[in-house]
Design a protein around this nucleic acid. Structure first.
Lengths: 257, 257
DNA sequence: CGGCGTATTGACGCACCTCAAGGTAAGTGG
DNA sequence: CCACTTACCTTGAGGTGCGTCAATACGCCG
């Protein structure tokens, strides 16, 4: 199923503003982005599949993409969820892997800017700013992945969920007083490397640790309890620092509940 | 305990030949390496500790370094083992993290070339070849870390050990017909994120899957069984491809046993 | 010899997986 | 409008792999 092409210009504007391109001159940006085109993928379709040639670089303009590996015994592992502003397959391009070892599936309707891998490589050679940004982005990805390994070893399911919800709250700029899960629970469970049943069973336990979840609705109720349960072990938690200032008022709000 | 300084020149020559510096001119190499100095660290001492400032880049000339995170509840997780030719703390330098979140411990006597982080950044800006190499190295690190997450989700302890031994065999250029473990078993277990007891108990099971381990001695006995047990699930396995040619003769050897 | 670091082995508990049976909620067709 | 389906989630019962604690064995060196 060939992806539909989309002529919209607004997406290009979104892309131009991304941190990944920060510091590049407008001419440099144009030189790079001019070589790309906007594509859209409907729900459940693949941007690329395990085994496909690595020839493109993707920047997500809208929607959510899931990276999945299908193991020979039929199990699927979601290795990452990416949304607006994220880039895809940088790693593969720079490791000089010629085939994808993961599939990228559109979780919902997805719009991407698709660039030839060569174009990215050329721009990196000519733009020092881009090189710096890509380096930083890869380094960040590597660090995050390493932390995930750690977490899986040291934390229980409930703690991982707690961490993930906090992370999500910051990343999507949700209000800690209450927000709705942006993905299906099964998708989140898969992302966290656990079974849906385990995920489901862990949610009620979270209430004892300061987070209440009913249906798709999440509320952070007791910041101190959240901290004690998960933050202390989770080193990647922007939540703690991000909402440190909030915490005074949030405690007040909790008292008022 | 301040690290001893070592005046040896031969280490510099090792470093000059590393893939990481491949493609740089001799002048570029000298400009970069001239800013570094050789240090040696005795067994059990720290190159840097969790919380230290990120100010240096390390290239290991000899020995083995263990990256560990100490969790608040006293558990240690080894996130990586690095040896001659590997680089340390690239990730931290390029994520612009100002503090180390892991400690680096010398497993045995370790000799490193220590460079100021700034020197590396400058050289990257001026040498396109170096920029490419560092990009590739980070991308590779990120990919490997992601694979590890996957493995931890999908594989049993025995399978992870099998994969690790195969990987080790290739990385250290050991003979598959028999080699001696280069690290203590407790270190390997820690690296694989499992308890020593679990590791110990898994070893006898490996015999049924084509790998026999007695004491520190490892022998790959049945390539087909190894494949069936671990390779099919382990996507990072250079072993399979590396020894594909060997396999015919190895099968012969197995038959002869 | 005794002490020390390292590895093996056993018994037990817990966290998670697996299979299976409801239970909602939204969409579909008559 | 209501039965029916489908997708998604919850809940229960039972199994298993790994962690934990504890006892024991092995190799090394003083």
């Amino acid at each position: 199923m060939p992806p539909k092409q989309n002529a919209s210009h607004t997406y290009m504007e979104i892309v131009r503003g991304l941190p990944l391109l920060e510091g590049m001159t407008e001419t440099e940006k144009s030189a790079l982005l001019g070589k790309g085109r906007i594509f859209s993928y409907p729900r459940k379709t693949a941007l690329f599949l395990q085994g496909d040639a690595v020839d493109s670089f993707y920047i997500i303009c809208a929607g959510t993409v899931q990276l999945v590996r299908s193991t020979p015994d039929g199990h699927d592992v979601t290795t990452g969820l990416f949304t607006e502003g994220d880039a895809l397959s940088e790693k593969e391009i720079f490791t000089a892997a010629d085939r994808h070892s993961l599939s990228a599936m559109a979780v919902d309707g997805v719009v991407v800017l698709k660039l030839p891998a060569e174009a990215l490589k050329q721009s990196i050679a000519s733009s020092e700013a881009l090189a710096r940004n890509v380096l930083a982005s890869l380094a960040r990805a590597a660090t995050l992945a390493e932390r995930e390994v750690e977490q899986r070893v040291t934390m229980t399911a409930a703690q991982m969920i707690s961490c993930y919800l906090q992370h999500m709250c910051v990343a999507h700029d949700f209000k800690p007083e209450g927000f709705t899960l942006p993905y299906k629970k099964s998708l989140i469970a898969s992302r966290l490397g656990m079974e849906l049943e385990t995920f489901s069973r862990a949610l009620p336990k979270l209430r004892e640790h300061g987070i209440s979840v009913s249906g798709p609705r999440v509320t952070f109720e007791d910041f101190a309890a959240i901290d004690a349960h998960a933050c202390a072990r989770c080193s990647v938690n922007e939540f703690c620092t991000t909402y440190k200032s909030l915490r005074g008022s949030a405690d007040g709000a909790t008292a008022a509940l």
